[in-house]
């Protein structure tokens, strides 16, 4: 028995909607006969791709006027929830997704399940699998309460699949007054440029960590990534240190990547980092400490100094082309 309706929070990207959003729409359409998207900052053309992935309607919030998107979407969902009675609501495990789920949860007294990595339908009830202890254990959980369950789902838990449905209808709604939560406003956005393929879609990811020793050494990471047509990534340690922007961060609080090969340079392999990259087909690690946890998951581990290994590796690859 499938569910009747699931709502999905769909986030925009430069190319329309985010890949994670399409993953969630695809997953939802496997569990419910009706899937409706809630979005912002997108044009009506997204109806096409959302429809192909299984949504029949997209509600687009207009007039945010700087209000944080998660807050705005929670307000719109809260107003319609009792009349439209969805069985479940899916959010991506992003800043905006968590904001929206948290606001909605407290507004309507609904519980949230976070870090969801899989879902199944058993006896008409959604059962979620949630990664705990940095992904080393998985718990299966379900809601005991009535009312829609809120699920915050990690990226790349489901494969996006265009099944060729017709375009989703587009309904535009004004955000309107959202009370005190709406007093936080974006006054300016700053874009930190990055080049090359997108980190979460690149077939090769070369990441650097604190073992690089200093910001300048990150150039080696960028150069190797460029030579391999890959994307440069980073551990949180060097993002927090301000060496590279947050958009480079791989891990629990950053991007989840599943490339053909992931090359970790000077990264210890904390569980929060590994949860974002252990789905890679192949893993190469370079670390001077033979006991670094990253070696427990590496297909090829090099115990060595990044300052010695990387320059030679870069030269060797350059001399091939």
């Amino acid at each position: 028995m499938s569910l009747s309706k699931i709502w999905v929070f769909v986030e925009p990207s430069e190319s329309g909607v985010s890949t994670t959003s399409l993953e969630l729409i695809t997953a939802a359409s496997g569990f419910a006969s009706t899937v409706e998207a809630f979005s912002y900052g997108v044009g009506s053309e997204v109806g096409q791709i959302l429809g192909e992935h299984g949504a029949s309607k997209v509600v687009v919030a207009n007039g945010l006027n700087g209000v944080l998107a998660g807050t705005a979407i929670a307000s719109i969902m809260a107003k319609r929830i009792s009349a439209e009675a969805p069985d479940a609501i899916f959010f991506g495990s992003t800043a905006e997704g968590r904001d929206a789920a948290a606001r909605l949860s407290a507004k309507l007294d609904l519980p949230v399940l976070t870090n969801v990595v899989n879902l199944s339908l058993e006896g008409g009830v959604l059962l979620s699998e949630n990664a705990v202890f940095g992904g080393s254990e998985v718990v299966s959980a379900r809601f005991k309460s009535s009312g829609p369950g809120l699920y915050v789902i990690r990226a790349k838990s489901f494969a996006p699949e265009a099944r060729g449905g017709s375009a989703a209808s587009v309904e535009e709604v004004a955000v309107g007054d959202i009370g005190s939560a709406g007093k936080a406003k974006i006054v300016q956005s700053h874009v930190e440029a990055r080049s090359g393929p997108k980190l979460d879609e690149a077939p090769v990811v070369v990441s650097g960590g604190r073992g690089l020793g200093q910001q300048d050494s990150y150039q080696m990471i960028e150069e190797l990534a460029r030579l391999l047509n890959g994307a440069p990534g980073a551990s949180r340690a060097i993002v927090d240190a301000g060496w590279v922007p947050y958009a480079y961060q791989v891990g629990q609080t950053g991007k989840t990547v599943k490339p053909t090969v992931y090359i970790a340079c000077g990264i210890s392999g904390a569980t929060q980092h590994m949860v974002g990259m252990k789905g890679a087909k192949n893993i190469i690690a370079i670390n001077k400490d033979a006991d670094a946890p990253i070696f427990t998951i590496a297909d090829l581990g090099i115990v060595g100094d990044v300052h010695k290994v990387l320059p030679k590796l870069i030269e060797a690859i350059k001399s091939r082309s």
């Binding site: 519980p111 399940l113 059962l127 990664a131 992904g135 080393s136 254990e137 998985v138 718990v139 299966s140 959980a141 379900r142 809601f143 005991k144 309460s145 252990k278 893993i283 033979a290 070696f295 427990t296 998951i297 590496a298 297909d299 090829l300 581990g301 090099i302 115990v303 060595g304 100094d305 010695k308 290994v309 030679k312 590796l313 060797a316």
Partner: peptide, 26 residues
């Protein structure tokens, strides 16, 4: 209002070859 139904260990990834760099590990 959440109930944990069961717990299992996540699939582990096996480690592969580890070599110590003597200058030519690249």
């Amino acid at each position: 209002s959440q109930e944990i139904v069961s717990v299992r260990a996540a699939e582990e990834r096996a480690s592969g070859t580890v070599v110590v760099d003597e200058g030519d590990a690249f």
